[in-house]
């Protein structure tokens, strides 16, 4: 039975790299006693497909992965068992059978928070004519203006600092990771530490429909 699993990765779990997450999930299924279809090949491993890798340091309440469960288990039972096999800061919040294809993912929404001293700087950073990021590929560093792709939905400044909701392109067609975006911001002014909170909260398809 193919199932989609939605899970959160919060607090200390934001330091678990994608590779470590794959290993963690593999073991979690084993601990949960959930038999998952394995990859074919020399060293068969449970075949787990993730929607979109999450950068280090970024939390999420919206992660998605697909597996094929080889037992007759209800979604509720899968969720309960899997949560028993997962570390504290990774929690399954939903299991369902009728997920949309991952290739339709096009955007992701993030909640971003900064302390007060960064609020004005962030305001001018996103309102400048261009937002330059540097990506390295085999031909060397490439500068890209990502301004057209960044959509600030909400920007509140209060005594606790800035609370922002923004959307970045995510998925197979065009992808801007939150780390690259944050890197550009922290490169735009003098600082020796990067204080932020970032959490991925939703995925969307091309038409702006909530992806599930």
């Amino acid at each position: 039975m193919p199932v989609r699993i939605r899970f959160s990765k919060t607090d200390t779990a934001c330091f678990i790299s994608h590779l470590d997450l794959v290993r963690c999930m593999t073991r979690a299924f084993q601990r949960a006693g959930i038999s998952v279809r394995r990859s074919q090949g020399y060293n068969p491993r449970p075949h787990i497909v993730f929607a979109a890798p999450l950068s280090l340091g970024i939390e999420s309440t919206a992660e998605l992965m697909d597996v094929i469960v080889e037992q007759d288990l209800s979604p509720a039972e899968i969720m309960q068992r899997l949560n028993g096999g997962l570390p504290r800061d990774i929690r399954v919040s939903d299991v369902y059978e009728d997920g949309m294809p991952f290739r339709q993912i096009s955007k992701a929404r993030y909640n971003l928070k900064f302390p007060e001293q960064y609020a004005r700087l962030f305001d001018s950073f996103v309102n400048a004519d261009r937002i330059m990021t540097v990506k390295k590929n085999k031909h060397g560093p490439i500068q890209t203006d990502i301004k057209p792709y960044v959509n600030i939905e909400r920007f509140d400044i209060g005594p606790a600092g800035a609370d922002i909701s923004l959307i970045l392109p995510t998925g197979p067609d065009y992808n801007i990771s939150m780390r690259v975006f944050l890197g550009a911001f922290f490169d735009s002014f003098e600082n020796d530490e990067q204080i932020f909170y970032a959490c991925r909260t939703d995925f969307f398809d091309k038409n702006g429909k909530l992806f599930r």
Binding site: D11, T12, F15, I16, C24, R27, P87, R88
Partner: peptide
Amino acid sequence: KPSRYIGGEFGS
């Protein structure tokens, strides 16, 4: 490898 410094592993 920051995950060496944060605990929270399964079984801890």
